[in-house]
Design a protein around this nucleic acid. Sequence first.
DNA 1: TTGTTTTAGCGCATAAATGCGCAAATTTGT
DNA 2: ACAAATTTGCGCATTTATGCGCTAAAACAA
Lengths: 231, 231
Amino acid sequence: MTSSPDRPLDGSGKTLLDYPRPSVAVDTALLTVHDGALKVLLVRRPGPGEGWALPGTFVHPGERLADAVLRSLREKAGVTGRSPHQLHVFDEPDRDNRGWVLSVAHVDVVPEAALIGSAVTAPRAKPQPVIELVEIDAIDSMDLPYDHGQIIGHAVTHIRGNYKTSPDPGGLLTGPFTLKELREVHESVLGEPLQRDTFRRTMERQLSATGAMSDGTKGRPAALFVSRGAT
Amino acid sequence: MTSSPDRPLDGSGKTLLDYPRPSVAVDTALLTVHDGALKVLLVRRPGPGEGWALPGTFVHPGERLADAVLRSLREKAGVTGRSPHQLHVFDEPDRDNRGWVLSVAHVDVVPEAALIGSAVTAPRAKPQPVIELVEIDAIDSMDLPYDHGQIIGHAVTHIRGNYKTSPDPGGLLTGPFTLKELREVHESVLGEPLQRDTFRRTMERQLSATGAMSDGTKGRPAALFVSRGAT
DNA sequence: TTGTTTTAGCGCATAAATGCGCAAATTTGT
DNA sequence: ACAAATTTGCGCATTTATGCGCTAAAACAA
């Protein structure tokens, strides 16, 4: 490829395109809660190097990293409407046998309900599913490619840190929720039980009561809340 | 450039080199404490687009991001022996008029003593210095290029977070130190006074007394400490 | 020897945080 | 009407954290 005539030349009379450049990929640990446990979404890689991996893609020209993440989640997993957060750039020069590839790891959280209609729940006409949710504790025994195991570790640490102080920062609960629902989703993410009063005191100042009560339950209906400042 | 014959082909018969790729740069906010204030190291950019900026460079093939950071600190500022931490990838497609450039922002901390002999303190034979230390509060009025102002903001937040809980995690104090010296360097980084007893209680469990006392002072000599787990 | 200087340990009052048992409140079921 | 179920507010004891004045300790100066 020849130099672009409309780009500035440097001190050696060259443009950026005259120098070797890496391919840049994005990989995303998409976390959700299913059956009371924190899980990560894996996709099946076809062809050589097949197996389970995090959804990812190479970044296209003119594309933001987050846009590449969103494209890969849609194309590989049928998931839309996320807002990924950068974690770390994995830069081992020989991490990919195809050549020099940097991977910008991301993390995002998705409510289980948003996976309805995605490849997770599509009828399994094929003998093997293209996507699955895997419990965090089962990742170590899966032999994922590249640094995907490390990416998941980073992601879990990051998200659990957020869940220590803020009410459902990942938006796992859609719509108003009760204090008990909030605590339970936090317990699922953090993987440990939480003391009811301590949890309530931490969260209540960041919540707004909706004035409505939960319904359809035997026993005292619980008050419904939304997060303050949540859109 | 033609495809490399020894690299795997993808489903379209192409290698990675057949696809457009961005240039990847690293930029580093190198922080230090000087005269009791937190400062960032800026370097002078020659030629077009001259002015002050964070030290940075393009990543070379086979090079880790941290190695590129170290190379840029050595070449642009004469600083060696650091261990940079990744902060964030700045990925605005048009952030650089030379073409598609991603910048991986880093942060590191350097003791003022390690700048001795670097370009900071070299005799100023030229009419303009090539390097300077700028107080954090003065950055907003400097009109730095690209996203360097944001990088500095991220870096300061990150480092100040570390200094809230750990004794001198950036290694600004070289060798054993007194509790007062430790507190003073923390106050310089955080930009606010700290309560003596509260600070001591937070830090003392992460410190080992050396058994030695400071000397050469009038008044009671203070005990000397090192951080636990510090190399 | 005494006084001054400097550092920091500590007693203590106060404030804040935590965890738990109890029961008020509000529903459904009989 | 009463019982059962469920949620959660709260009183309270306990634990933990904070800030400050006082002074012990160990140096140097006179």
